[in-house]
Computed example of a mutant assay.
Amino acid sequence: MAATKADRERTEPPLTIQEMAQRSGFSEPTLRYYEKIGLLGPVPRDDSSGHRRYHAALAERVDALACLRSSGMSVAEMRRYLTLLDEGGRAAAAEQRDLFARHADRLSGEIERLRVRQAYMHSKADMWDARYRGDTDAEERAIEQVEHVLRRF
């Protein structure tokens, strides 16, 4: 049976800011900034040292934000996501759906642009390889491919 959040809170030691940074991929200054602007809420502190301690539920929130941020979601969009998450309900669910659908559409466009850039790089590599080998026919075909890809930009 899977452990509940409460069980994990009791059994998993809280993470230090260094551990949270390593786990999430965020830098320590970013974690402090996200706390300051309210994305994380107040991060509990160790009573003796005053150092930040990220318990399991807070670490999961940081992990979710790291996923959203790594996909290119803005801080404003992450803030909206968290607000809607707290609101709950059908209206919030519909807005969450729309938020994620818009972001997924943006990612689709970015992926297509990356595919064009990738095709350009492959074509240029083919062109330079043909030139290196002295194969003028292959070089001409590669140049045509480069020109074709450039028209897609």
Rank of each mutant, 00 (worst) to 15 (best):
I111V: 13
A130C: 09
L85Q: 13
A119R: 15
H103K: 04
R90E: 14
R117L: 06
A104P: 02
C67T: 03
G89A: 10
D105H: 07
R90I: 08
Y132I: 08
R131D: 14
G89N: 10
S71H: 08
A66C: 00
R141H: 12
D105R: 06
D63M: 02
L65F: 01
L65N: 00
F100Y: 08
D137R: 10
R97V: 05
M121T: 12
R79S: 07
E147C: 05
A93C: 13
A91F: 08
T83D: 14
S108W: 07
A92R: 05
R141A: 15
E144A: 15
L82P: 04
E110C: 03
F100A: 09
D135R: 06
T136L: 11
A119D: 14
A91V: 13
D129P: 02
Y81L: 04
A92I: 04
R115L: 03
K124M: 14
R133M: 05
G88F: 08
M127Q: 15
R90L: 12
L150I: 12
L68G: 02
D137E: 15
E112P: 03
Y132R: 15
A101I: 10
Y132D: 15
A104C: 09
A119M: 09
L85K: 08
D63H: 06
D129N: 15
D126L: 05
E87L: 10
A76Q: 12
L65K: 01
R117A: 06
D135K: 06
V75P: 03
R113A: 04
R115A: 04
D137L: 06
A142L: 07
E112V: 10
Y120F: 14
L114W: 09
S71V: 09
L84Y: 06
E112G: 07
D137N: 09
Q145V: 01
R106G: 00
S123P: 01
S70D: 10
A130K: 06
L84Q: 02
S108N: 11
A104K: 12
R97S: 08
T83V: 08
M121W: 05
V146M: 15
E139R: 09
A94R: 15
R79H: 06
Y132E: 14
G134I: 02
A91K: 14
V149H: 08
D86M: 07
A76G: 03
A119H: 09
C67W: 00
E77G: 02
G72H: 00
Y81A: 02
S108R: 12
E144Y: 01
L68D: 05
R90W: 08
S74C: 05
A76I: 01
E77R: 06
E95C: 02
S74E: 13
G89C: 10
H103I: 01
T136P: 01
F100S: 01
D63V: 00
L68K: 03
D63W: 01
S108M: 09
S74F: 04
S108T: 14
G109L: 08
L65P: 00
S108F: 03
M73W: 06
Y120E: 14
D105Y: 01
E95D: 10
S71C: 14
M121K: 03
A66Y: 00
A142C: 13
